[in-house]
Design a protein around this nucleic acid. Structure first.
Lengths: 154, 154
DNA sequence: TAATTGGTTCTCTTTTAGGAAAACCAAAAT
DNA sequence: ATTTTGGTTTTCCTAAAAGAGAACCAATTA
């Protein structure tokens, strides 16, 4: 893992810009690069030289947004944490955000009953987000099929 | 504008959860609800009773991400700020974020030359994001056509 | 039963972000 | 030439976030 220090720093910066805390960002990248793409609590505390609470809270946060999950091996108490790709930016998560946004737009549109150009724009953008909400599941559907095909070929 | 106080508070909470600062969120919603969907610096300072620097910085931030822009009227120095719907979540902005993300995934995939299941997952998710990058312009294209049609009917 | 392991939670400190207040500045008006 | 207008920038303060360190706790092991 030593050889990855620099790379972890670099990618973590990007993840921080997407809203992760410093330690959470590092843990996330670390896990993806680690042997068997999983690691223990202790390994991460040691590697980064940060406190147990920092790692504990980072993991808690990452688990809460489904970016990471933990498994035990052979009934041992120790947990192995790993990045959970498939759930990460789930349909639900995206859908919620999109809905939140066009809900505001629609409300503003009906509140200001002006029927001017700006109301038209509000309607247009709201329409775009609704299209997105409709199209995204279709894209995901197609994506899943390409994956299924890939699996078959193996 | 007085009658909107509550509504502005309510929607601003959502916008804050999407990453805007308190004042930026309020300015953004205020502008959409205001007469002619535009307002002056002074109006906002007065309405919210916050400092000029708070409003100035909020506007600076909102302009930098293309959510708001300013125009002058009749060569006057005073600027009228308004929400810039069409640019807001522009293709470029989305594209940059999406690229940032799959760039990390692709780099990690090539770095850990493991060729295991996890590498497969990385490739899958990266593929999804690339699909998105490809599909989004198509959706935008169709969206623009529906808008054009609407314009014609007027 | 005591000690160890694998964390979590609590309290305290440090860092950072958001905003206030005042100084500042350029353009326009007087 | 001075004052006013329409902001911007700088400095400072406060509050919130991130993390340290120690205490804690439940499960396991000795």
């Amino acid at each position: 893992m030593e050889k990855y220090r620099e790379k972890i720093e670099q990618h973590s910066a990007t993840m921080e810009s997407m809203g992760l805390t410093p330690v959470a960002a590092r843990v996330f990248i670390y896990l993806m690069l680690s042997e068997e793409h999983q690691a223990t609590f202790e390994q991460m505390v040691d590697y980064f030289g940060v406190s147990k609470s920092a790692v504990s809270n980072a993991l808690k946060m990452l688990e809460s947004v489904k970016m990471v999950d933990a498994k035990t091996i052979g009934g041992q108490r120790k947990r192995y944490f790993s990045v959970n790709m498939k759930n990460m930016f789930s349909e639900d998560y995206l859908a919620t955000r999109i809905k939140q946004f066009y809900t505001i737009l629609d409300d503003i549109r009906t509140t200001r009953k002006a029927d001017d150009d700006f109301n038209g724009e509000l309607e247009d953008i709201s329409g775009l987000y609704k299209m997105m909400l409709f199209e995204i599941p279709l894209i995901l559907e197609r994506w899943k099929r390409t994956i299924a095909l890939k699996q078959q070929r193996k």
